[in-house]
């Protein structure tokens, strides 16, 4: 795929804004519409813009997959951490006695982990499609 100079320039301008919007969606996931899955998909879209800028760049698939597995383990651990701290599984690991601002840490942590996992997964799918075939 040979890109025109127009597409490359517009992609370079758009790239930081896409990432900024993605991180806004993730970090405000518990206050405004959005969250881990949506923000991760937007991050993946921003990452795909880099293929428009330089179509020769490749990412190592093995590294992507390994990180995705580690992130999935981290998500599982974060979800079941409340079994130790509160005695009931799969809920917030900070007890309701804390103020709301501190209990937000759980949502922030889980949103960021989920979004990174979704972004890595979608990038790996597109990367597989890019590497398939000789053309």
């Amino acid at each position: 795929m040979k890109q025109s100079i127009l597409v490359i320039t517009i992609s370079r301008i758009m790239l930081p804004f896409v990432f900024l919007y993605g991180f806004y969606i993730i970090l405000h996931g518990d206050l405004s519409p959005g969250g881990g899955f949506q923000g991760g998909a937007i991050l993946a879209t921003g990452f795909l813009l880099t293929y428009f800028i330089d179509d020769e760049r490749r990412v190592d698939l093995n590294r992507l997959m390994r990180r995705e597995k580690l992130l999935f383990l981290a998500i599982l651990l974060t979800g079941s951490l409340s079994l130790i701290t509160r005695g009931e599984p799969f809920t917030n690991f900070l007890s309701p006695d804390f103020p709301v601002e501190i209990r937000r840490i759980f949502f922030l942590l889980l949103n960021v982990l989920l979004s990174l996992k979704v972004a890595l997964g979608l990038t790996a799918i597109v990367e597989t499609f890019l590497e398939e075939g000789q053309g």
């Binding site: 996931g29 518990d30 519409p33 809920t91 937000r104 949502f107 949103n111």
Partner: peptide
């Protein structure tokens, strides 16, 4: 109960 203003987020994360 959850501390999330976005109730969708409260459902799928808590």
């Amino acid at each position: 109960e959850t501390g999330a203003k976005n109730l969708v987020s409260a459902i799928y994360l808590d």
